[in-house]
């Protein structure tokens, strides 16, 4: 960020209301050129709505946003040439082949031969689409389809890219490839705003904005967010597992308890003392056998849960 001081996206007090419902509530942030900026939040927190406003597809109710120096509400047409947008359900034409879809989107952006052909071949190589180039996209698996969709979204080499849950339903190996490509694009100077529910993906962002009920609740690097987590973490191997979880979840000094794999993970209030004894007592009272207790490293999921909480999503859509 230090070496990319220019701002690609500037958002000030951006607000969107649908009748009485405030989907996005005075959001402000800045994304630097070449940054991979992550959007994290519960379903219905306003992430997609924000992206749609930044793409000029929705008009803000209040506030303003500039993308590539262009006002999203007034300079929409010029804006569209500067951005690539991959919505959650990207509209590939199922009865066209991968390459035909690419040709279609290239046509939308006015690309002509011979540069069109060169660009398509470049993307086929880069996204490893050779195997499916002649296949109808309606018959592709989710992972392939998302790759073709990404290729379509970047066919016109946009300096700014908006990706809304691009890896939903994509298997881990393909996700790795996908994120490698995002990293490469950023290294070449493309600014990327991406939403995800997966913490392993969030870890790969330069900075993260956590959003809940339309409001910005945290904004920092993954490392800083983890460092800023309140409380101490413990990982406990116990038998039986579920009573252990229940005993700890209801203990007064425990802020948060959850299962992670076959271990119980708890976050306890930091009082300058070790809480190990208190944990052992609580588990002994519940007649749970403790196999192991160790200090845990904070994860982004811990941060997310601590900020969003175990509250119910009252703000659904």
């Amino acid at each position: 960020m230090a070496d990319a001081p220019r701002a690609a996206v500037v958002v000030e007090d951006l607000t969107k209301r649908f009748r009485d419902f405030v989907a996005v509530d005075h959001l402000s942030f800045t994304i630097a050129e070449g940054e991979v900026f992550g959007f994290l939040g519960p379903n219905g927190a306003g992430k997609s709505t924000t992206i749609r406003m930044l793409c000029g597809l929705l008009l803000p109710s209040e506030g303003r946003a500039q993308v590539a120096g262009l006002d999203v509400a007034r300079e929409t047409e010029a804006l569209r040439r500067q951005i690539g947008y991959m919505p959650q359900l990207f509209s590939l034409y199922p009865d066209l082949t991968s390459v035909e879809n690419l040709e279609f989107y290239a046509g939308l952006y006015g690309l002509r031969q011979p540069s069109l052909g060169t660009r398509i071949e470049e993307l086929v190589v880069r996204l490893d689409l050779e195997a499916v180039r002649g296949q109808l996209t309606g018959t592709l698996s989710t992972g392939w389809r998302q790759r073709v969709a990404l290729a379509c979204a970047i066919i016109h080499e946009p300096p700014i890219l908006f990706l809304d849950e691009p890896t939903s339903g994509v298997d881990p190996a393909v996700r790795q490839q996908f994120w490698n490509l995002i990293g490469d694009l950023a290294a070449e100077g493309t600014t990327v705003l991406v939403t995800t529910h997966l913490m392993e993906e969030a870890e790969r962002c330069a900075r993260l904005a956590m959003i809940d009920r339309g409001r910005l609740i945290a904004l920092d690097t993954p490392q800083a967010l983890r460092d800023g987590l309140q409380g101490l973490l413990y990982e406990i191997d116990a038998d039986p597992l579920l009573p252990a979880l229940e005993a700890l979840a209801s203990a007064p000094f425990v802020m948060d308890a959850a299962l992670s794999g076959a271990t119980v993970r708890v976050r306890v209030a930091e009082m300058g003392i070790s809480r190990e004894a208190a944990i052992r007592d609580a588990l002994a009272a519940a007649q749970v056998n403790v196999v192991d207790i160790r200090a845990g490293e904070p994860s982004l999921e811990d941060v997310f849960i601590s900020l969003v909480g175990d509250r119910e999503e009252a703000s659904a859509r």
């Binding site: 927190a45 529910h197 597992l241 979880l245 959850a258 999921e301 997310f304 909480g309 175990d310 509250r311």
Partner: peptide, 19 residues
Amino acid sequence: EPTRGVDPVSRRDLWRIVY
């Protein structure tokens, strides 16, 4: 794939029931 596209908070709730 019951947790596809589901946020971490809801994912925890779902898993608590499964457990």
